[in-house]
Simulated assay, not measured.
Amino acid sequence: MSAPLSVPLTDDTADAPVHRSRPALSPSRASDFKQCPLKYRLRAIDRVPEPPSRAAVRGTVVHAVLEDLFGLPAAERQPARAAELVPGAWERVRAERDGVDELVAEGGPQALFDEVRTLVASYYELEDPRRFEPHALEERVEV
């Protein structure tokens, strides 16, 4: 995994250039920019803290399930096995992030599990994770 590139910027008040990392452009951030350039700036450049949302927590749990799924041998990456991974992924997200319990209070964790299972099942409509071995789970790409 490569480190983010630093771009030297000139600063009139200092003798040495200032190094800042370029903001990453994920699909979510690209969507923010298309929706509202100011929203992109606040999130990606200024990095104004945002309270977590239920949708963000759900997405984080889906991501954790998919990471766990690709940790299994290809033959074990069955849809039913992916559904079984949801509670464990949820427990890890709960342990890593404060305040997520309050976001899923309405409907309880079971409602969240059902939503996550539906989203993970839809992944199988896009591609079959049993048919390939991933090169990496996370990799930085720069263009």
Rank of each mutant, 00 (worst) to 15 (best):
A24F: 07
D46T: 10
P27C: 03
V65Q: 01
S122C: 01
D114T: 07
P37F: 13
D98N: 06
A80H: 08
V120C: 03
D46Q: 14
T10N: 10
D12V: 13
H135K: 10
P87N: 13
S31Q: 11
A75K: 13
V141P: 10
S28A: 11
V116K: 03
A82H: 11
R94P: 01
A83N: 05
I45F: 09
E106P: 02
A95G: 14
P17V: 04
P79I: 06
A16D: 15
F132M: 07
E96H: 09
A3Q: 15
G71P: 01
L112H: 00
A80W: 02
T60V: 07
D128L: 00
V116G: 00
D15F: 08
A136M: 02
K39V: 15
A80R: 14
R77Q: 02
S122L: 05
D11R: 08
D15Q: 14
E133I: 09
P129F: 02
P49H: 06
S53M: 08
R131Y: 10
Y123D: 08
E76V: 06
L72T: 11
A82F: 06
V116I: 03
P17H: 06
Q78I: 07
A16S: 15
R58E: 14
D11F: 08
D98K: 10
A24H: 04
E102A: 12
L103S: 03
E96G: 10
A14R: 15
H63A: 13
A30D: 05
A80E: 11
L85D: 04
I45N: 01
L103D: 01
P73T: 10
P4F: 03
L103N: 00
Y123P: 02
H63S: 14
